[in-house]
Every structure is written in structure tokens, then in C-alpha cells.
Write a protein that binds this DNA or RNA. Structure first.
Length: 264
DNA sequence: AAGGACTGCAACCGCACATTT
DNA sequence: GAAATGTGCGGTTGCAGTCCT
């Protein structure tokens, strides 16, 4: 198999390309640079995982809040596992997909450290491979099998599960957001979410959420230029380091930030 | 050795739901 | 209660690394 997890990180695009992707609103698009990652991590640390639009503005990142959130959730979050899925995880994905269909976020919640995007990607690859194998197999035996094999291609696990999972696998998944789930399921999901948070880093628990601070920012203003991103170590190390989450360690830095922001 | 095909993954998009004003 | 804003989700695309011929 291929091992390109680390090298594949598009955080450092080739020099020429970096500036060219700019959305109509003036927002940057495309791969994130290491500096952007650092900045984002820094501001997420300050403000927590919410108000992404605000965070995007205040940080001075020329990104949409959505983009920031995605980057954080799928790449920078310290709880993420990196690397290939283990066979156990692969089995789990198959199991859970059989049960829940394309409810990736739900599946992801059952697999700590894995993101919906990651699982989705894995499944796509997985089904593509399976589909290919199935086709190859059916082609090989085409001459000997009955006509059922032709309709099988449409009914093969791979194709049905991915393209029509919404109608085959799960009673409620033809409505993407679980409209059919009823409140019990919704509250269950909430409970799951809560569990995830409490068992995980529990960002909110030590969140430096401070509305006064927020209000003190001039909306749309660029981030204070004197906010120095964390040390020169790789972003990932930084994100995983205790210092990022152990807010107490960095009280001085934080106070500096408050001062910059003009907070009382 | 070269170049096309394949693969894996990051990131974007559009939509829907949730929350706030 | 309506409108505005924020957030989350699933689907899709594009790119870069690797494999294969």
C-alpha cells in the first residue's frame, strides 16, 4: 500500500500557487500553509471551537469561517489519529456503514480520532476497489454465469452501499440529517456528542470565552500583528503539545493577547 | 526513464438544521 | 414569529504522490 500520510499534507503548496486561489469575496482558497495552520491553531486555542466566522476575521486569515472549521476539524484537531486505519477500524466502518448508511458524522462519532471526511474518503476508496473487483470477477465468470450477474453489478455491495445507501441500508437515512430519527435519536446523538467532548480534550471546559473580549475587537480588523505564532516546531507537534491545551502554561502569552485585544 | 493511470486525501460546495437577534 | 447568522453534514472535485507499463 501507499504511505503518504505525512507527505500528503497540502499545508505547504508550491510557492507559485499559493497566492492565486482567491474567492470572489477576497477569501483565500486552496491548500493551507503551515503559517495559516499555526495561526488558526493559535486562535482556536484562544476562542475555542466556535464562532468560526468571527475567528476567521479576527485571526486575519483570509479564509471563510467554514474553511477554518474544516481545517481544524479534519486536520489540526489534536485528538485526531493519523495514518492508515487499522483492520479493526476498517471492520468497524463496514459494520457501522451497514447499520447507518452514509451517516459519516455519526460513524465518526463512534470512532474516536477519525473524522467523517476521513471515513468518507476511506469508504469511497473501499467501495471503488470493491466495485472494481466485483466487475473484474463478474467479467471473468461472465460466460459461465446466469443473467443474474448482470443485474448484480447494480446490486453489488459496493455500488448499492455508496450510491444508494440512502435507500437501502438505513431506515432513516433517506433524509440526511436524521429527520426520521425522532427526538430520542437526536438526543442520543447529543449525548454522544457530549460524551465525545468530555472524553476528549474538552475544549469548552477551559474555554477562554469572553464576550467582552470579543466585543472589543473591531469587526473585520486584521489580527494584531504582534501575535507571534508558536515556536518554529511543526504545526502538528504544536497542536498536540500540552501547551496548546494546558492553558495555564501560557498565561503570560494569553494576557498579552488580552492586552492586545483591549480587554479589561 | 518517461509518462499515463491510479490512489488517497485535503478542501470546496450546496444544502439543511440550529441558534441568535 | 421572522429574518439573519452560524454550524454541521454529505457529496464532489482537484491535486500530488505512487504505481505500472
Amino acid at each position: 500500500m501507499k504511505t503518504k500520510q505525512a507527505s500528503k499534507a497540502k499545508a505547504a503548496p508550491s510557492p507559485g500557487k499559493e497566492e492565486e486561489a482567491v474567492a470572489p469575496g477576497g477569501f483565500r482558497k486552496g491548500p493551507w500553509t503551515e503559517q495559516e495552520d499555526m495561526k488558526l491553531a493559535w486562535f482556536v486555542r484562544l476562542f475555542g471551537e466556535r464562532r468560526w466566522d468571527f475567528l476567521a476575521k479576527v485571526s486575519g486569515l483570509n479564509r471563510t469561517g467554514k474553511s477554518c472549521r474544516l481545517r481544524w476539524v479534519n486536520y489540526l484537531h489534536p485528538d485526531l489519529k493519523r495514518g492508515r486505519m487499522s483492520p479493526e477500524e476498517e471492520r468497524l466502518v463496514v459494520d457501522l456503514h451497514a447499520r447507518w448508511g452514509n451517516r459519516w458524522s455519526r460513524i465518526a462519532k463512534a470512532m474516536p480520532g477519525r473524522t467523517d471526511n476521513e471515513i468518507k474518503n476511506y469508504w469511497r476508496t473501499h467501495t471503488r476497489k470493491l466495485h472494481k473487483d466485483t466487475r473484474a470477477a463478474s467479467a471473468a465468470s461472465a460466460s459461465t454465469t446466469t443473467t443474474t450477474s448482470t443485474s448484480m453489478s447494480a446490486a453489488s455491495p459496493a455500488t448499492t452501499s455508496s450510491s444508494s445507501s440512502s435507500s437501502t441500508n438505513d431506515n432513516d437515512n433517506h433524509s440526511h440529517h436524521g429527520h426520521g430519527d425522532q427526538e430520542t435519536a437526536a438526543s442520543q446523538e447529543q449525548a454522544d456528542h457530549q460524551l465525545l467532548y468530555t472524553s476528549g480534550i474538552g475544549m469548552d471546559s477551559h474555554l477562554l470565552w469572553n464576550d467582552a473580549l470579543m466585543d472589543s475587537y473591531a469587526w473585520g480588523a486584521a489580527a494584531p500583528s504582534m501575535i507571534v505564532p508558536p515556536p518554529s516546531s511543526p504545526v502538528w507537534d504544536y497542536c498536540c503539545s500540552d501547551s496548546l491545551w494546558g492553558i495555564g502554561d501560557d498565561e503570560v502569552e494569553y494576557k498579552k493577547m488580552l492586552a492586545v485585544a483591549g480587554a479589561p
